[in-house]
């Protein structure tokens, strides 16, 4: 149905679409072309061919950074979805007034610089940080825990950053669920738990998938948070690419990984655009 609408609108507004042409040309010349040129370096440096790509199979450092990135992104996505689902559920059930406050609390972190947030986590998590001191003071631990400069720290920071992005698509999906359906399910004999499992959850699933894709794709390219909270010991692709290009001047290897990243993102999007409605995911009506 949506697709039909689109086609009809395209036909009707054909003239207006032409107005987008200059912007499209500008974008191609100044944005898409340079990116493609940079990515093309992966096939030419240090010598022409697929040499850089063979390293995916042979080079341990390349493999390790790919696995670390995938692992961290998967865990981050899972945690952000769990926290986000709970939040979105609470917001959906809240009264109109409470909902506004909840939303504000979810959105405020988005307006604080990612740098500030990462350093805030460092102060909280480091050896003499608030958390370790509290735990030691309470006598729960004898030695400070290693909470930062490792995967744990990265994941904490990334989950914190991602939760709002997980909440918003899920909230949109949940708010579209008709309350009458839930009442109907109860009237037909379902307990609260059954209503949730058999009606609410399946109906909110498209939002969950959408949020998952969004968060996963976002986390793949994360740079600042892992760089600060990982302390250079745990590398994710973005930091690794910057290391290759800026410090080691290995343009070919760095751009190979960048190409891999772009391809992974495009493939993920292509796969999931068949599962969920992309227009809804990115805010379309």
């Amino acid at each position: 149905m949506r697709r039909g609408d689109m086609a009809a609108r395209l036909r009707r507004d054909g003239g207006w679409w032409a107005l987008l042409l200059p912007a499209f040309l500008l974008l191609s010349v100044f944005y898409i072309t340079p990116i493609l040129q940079v990515l093309a370096i992966s096939f030419t440096e240090p010598e022409p061919g697929l040499g850089n790509y063979q390293r995916i199979a042979t080079n341990l450092s390349v493999q390790r950074v790919i696995w670390t990135t995938l692992r961290i992104c998967t865990i981050t996505t899972a945690l952000a979805l769990m926290l986000g689902y709970g939040l979105a559920y609470a917001i959906t059930l809240a009264s109109e007034q409470a909902r506004r406050w909840w939303l504000l609390c979810v959105l405020v972190p988005l307006w604080i610089s990612v740098l500030v947030r990462a350093f805030a986590w460092v102060t909280l998590l480091r050896r003499q940080g608030l958390i370790n001191q509290t735990l030691q003071g309470a006598g729960i631990i004898a030695e400070p825990l290693q909470l930062v400069w490792n995967e744990f720290g990265i994941i904490v920071g990334m989950v914190h950053y991602m939760v709002p992005y997980a909440v918003l698509p899920m909230l949109a999906a949940m708010r579209e669920i008709e309350p009458r359906l839930l009442a109907a399910a109860r009237g037909l004999g379902a307990s609260r738990g059954q209503v949730f499992r058999q009606v609410f959850f399946p109906l909110s699933a498209p939002g969950l998938v959408a949020a998952g894709v969004l968060v996963f794709i976002f986390s793949l390219g994360f740079y600042i948070t892992p760089a600060i909270l990982g302390g250079g010991r745990t590398l994710m692709v973005a930091e690794w690419i910057s290391l290759q290009i800026l410090d080691l001047i290995r343009w070919g290897l760095g751009t190979m990984m960048a190409t891999l990243l772009v391809v992974t993102i495009l493939v993920t999007l292509a796969v999931f655009s068949r599962v969920v409605n992309m227009r809804r995911l990115f805010g379309g009506a």
Binding site: E178, R180, L181, A183, A184, A185, R186, G187, L188, G189, A190, S191, V199, L203
Partner: peptide
């Protein structure tokens, strides 16, 4: 409601989509 177990047809049906 679930203990009363009355059958109910809602205004607008409320079928599970």
């Amino acid at each position: 409601p679930e203990k009363r177990a009355f059958g109910m047809v809602f205004q607008g049906y409320a079928l599970f989509p």
